[in-house]
Amino acid sequence: MTKHTTGTREEWLSARLDLLKAEKELTRQSDELARRRQALPWVRVDKEYVFDTGEGKQSLRDLFAGRSQLLVYHFMFGPDYTAGCPSCSMIADGFDGFAVHLANHDVALWAVSRAPLAKLQAYRQRMGWTFPWASSQGNDFNFDFNVSFTEEQQREGSVEYNYRRSGQPMDAATIPEPVTRFAAACGTDGPTYKRDTPGMSAYVLENGVVYHTYSTYARGLDGLWGAYQWLDRAPLGRNETGVWWRRHDEYADG
């Protein structure tokens, strides 16, 4: 016998209509937040970044590939990793499906990571992905957009992520167990793993000038995490007590 509340179809419909009011209000709030994102001031990007891509060396401007808008997913794959972050991988599993639609709506989508291009390409092949992925190894892109940090910043507690400065030194002893587990899954240790973090950034190209328009990090990426949007609508919700996901080729029934 279930412990969850049960009722008649009429009782369910009454409760569902109350919930619908709240859902519609959340939708309106989401629309307003989208408007405010688009109203943010644009910041000109004057620094020249050169990326390694499957098509050779490309600038940030080149990544637009003829579009006026560019979305970048900052994928956690540091130079010392042997595989991409499992969480970023779960998010990226959805990219191929909508990247073609974005490309046909004046928006280019790229993943960018600090690992060498050869590592990114090998991992992309393993995962069966086709979306474009650039290596920022050797440039300041990840550091300038606050998704990568130095060992010195970790020691000093001067890491600034999600618009906050940590203020706390980081070493192996301060890394939570789930993070240590993810680090091991990426072939590295906790502090090295945490020198790269997830995020997404948006850019626009106007009159030959690139502008940075928006960035979000941490829980700000929830809306891009497609599986969670489905779980939030499942009967038991996220139903988790810890980290349960893994790369899609690592499940037992893979």
Rank of each mutant, 00 (worst) to 15 (best):
S30L: 06
E32I: 01
G78P: 05
A15E: 13
P132T: 05
P169S: 09
A184Q: 09
Y228W: 11
E177K: 15
N139I: 09
R67H: 10
P132S: 03
Q38K: 14
A252E: 15
I91R: 04
E177C: 05
L60P: 11
D96I: 06
Q58P: 04
Y193C: 06
L236D: 15
A115S: 08
Q229G: 15
L63G: 04
W110C: 05
W230N: 14
Q121H: 06
G128M: 01
C186Y: 00
A227S: 11
N162A: 14
P235S: 12
E55I: 01
V243D: 13
R155V: 11
Q168P: 13
T174G: 10
T2K: 13
F95Q: 09
T197S: 09
G220C: 09
A15W: 06
G7D: 02
T5V: 13
E240C: 13
R126W: 09
A183W: 00
L117Y: 01
E48S: 13
V179N: 10
F51N: 06
A184N: 11
T5Y: 03
T27L: 11
T180S: 13
G94S: 13
A252T: 15
K24F: 13
D31H: 13
A118L: 03
M127S: 12
E152R: 14
G66I: 04
T8L: 05
T6N: 08
E32L: 03
P132W: 00
S158M: 08
W244A: 13
V179Y: 04
H74K: 01
K57R: 12
Q137F: 01
A227Y: 09
T53P: 01
H101N: 14
Q38W: 02
Y228N: 15
R114Q: 05
Q154F: 04
L19K: 15
E55T: 04
N162K: 09
P191M: 05
A227N: 12
T53A: 00
L63D: 01
V243H: 07
N104K: 11
A99P: 07
S215D: 03
A218E: 08
I175D: 07
T130Q: 06
A92L: 05
Q137I: 01
E25T: 12
S136K: 00
G242R: 03
T216V: 09
R155F: 07
E152K: 14
L120M: 03
E151Q: 11
E206P: 11
V100Y: 01
A92Q: 04
Y161D: 14
H248F: 12
A111E: 04
S135P: 00
Q125P: 00
F98R: 14
A34G: 07
R114C: 02
G190Q: 06
D93F: 04
V100A: 13
I175R: 06
K3S: 14
A134L: 02
W133D: 02
A22L: 09
P178C: 09
L109Y: 13
E250C: 13
Y228E: 10
D140C: 04
A92K: 02
G220A: 06
G190A: 04
R114T: 05
R181L: 08
A103P: 03
D18R: 05
R246T: 14
Y193F: 15
Q125F: 03
N104R: 14
M200N: 08
C85R: 05
T8N: 07
D171C: 08
D96Q: 10
Q154M: 07
F141Y: 02
V45C: 09
L20G: 10
A173Y: 11
N104C: 11
Y123E: 08
Y161F: 10
D171G: 12
